[in-house]
């Protein structure tokens, strides 16, 4: 695997794996991430994937080096990374996210439809039939940066951001779609809401989604939303 190493401060190194957002580079990011997950170096504190990079944070005091700890970290990482290769035909994990579109859950659905000369039903149809990939988790706990939204339903951010967007809201900002894991202020156009929890602070992994996952949005009714919600809260 081809890569570049660069410092991100005096306690971290960033592994560069490409230049632009693509499935190929995403798979390399995922490969490196799962390697770091399994290979627990003594000196590693944690790793953080980005769109085209993986940052590795380390404890410089835990490295026995004749020279700089950074040089030793680079040497050890390189020896392993050179041998890594993305397997052909590796299938992503598919995560279904049920969404109740429109109504009080999606107050901006009609505006998104009007902007694009579509009916609200057509927006739902296009949104729930897309093939989405989670490129990375960031911005907020469990918040997925999702690629793959159909540009026919793109819509600019709201001029007046809302002070409170409820957790679970599904929105559109420009050519991106996303789901809010926790209540937060924000300017996204809200088209629906999921009853599934994306941020699970008590769980073994605190995020429902992980980089590399494939997402499927499944339209549900208000009644289905309510029974899902009860199940999630059990």
């Amino acid at each position: 695997m081809e890569f570049n190493l660069q410092p991100l401060g005096d306690n971290s190194v960033i592994i560069e794996l490409g230049e632009d957002i693509s499935r190929d580079i995403q798979q390399k990011v995922k490969k490196v991430s799962s390697f770091l997950e399994q290979q627990s170096f003594d000196w590693m504190v944690e790793y953080v994937p980005g769109f085209t990079t993986v940052a590795v944070f380390y404890d410089p005091c835990k490295i026995e080096a004749k020279t700089l700890p950074y040089d030793e970290v680079c040497e050890e990482l390189s020896a392993h990374l050179e041998k890594l290769a993305v397997e052909e035909g590796a299938e992503p994990r598919i995560v279904e996210i049920p969404v109740c579109y429109g109504g009080e859950f999606g107050p901006d659905l009609e505006e998104v439809a009007e902007r694009n000369d579509l009916t609200p039903e057509e927006v739902i149809d296009i949104h729930s039939n897309g093939e989405y990939i989670v490129y990375m988790i960031g911005f907020a706990p469990g918040f997925p940066y999702i690629g793959g939204m159909d540009e026919r339903i793109a819509a600019p951010r709201r001029k007046n951001p809302r002070l409170k967007i409820p957790a679970g809201s599904v929105g559109i900002a420009g050519k991106q779609t996303g789901v809010y894991p926790i209540e937060t202020p924000g300017g996204w156009q809200l088209i629906g809401k999921t009853p599934r929890k994306l941020f699970l602070p008590e769980g073994e992994t605190p995020s429902l989604l992980q980089a590399g996952d494939q997402i499927k949005f499944v339209p549900i009714s208000v009644e289905e939303f309510q029974s899902w919600e009860e199940k999630e809260n059990d």
Binding site: L8, N11, P49, G50, Y145
Partner: peptide
């Protein structure tokens, strides 16, 4: 720029 990890003191 594409989003990537940041650090304390960036």
């Amino acid at each position: 720029m594409l989003s990537e990890a940041v650090n304390f003191g960036t």
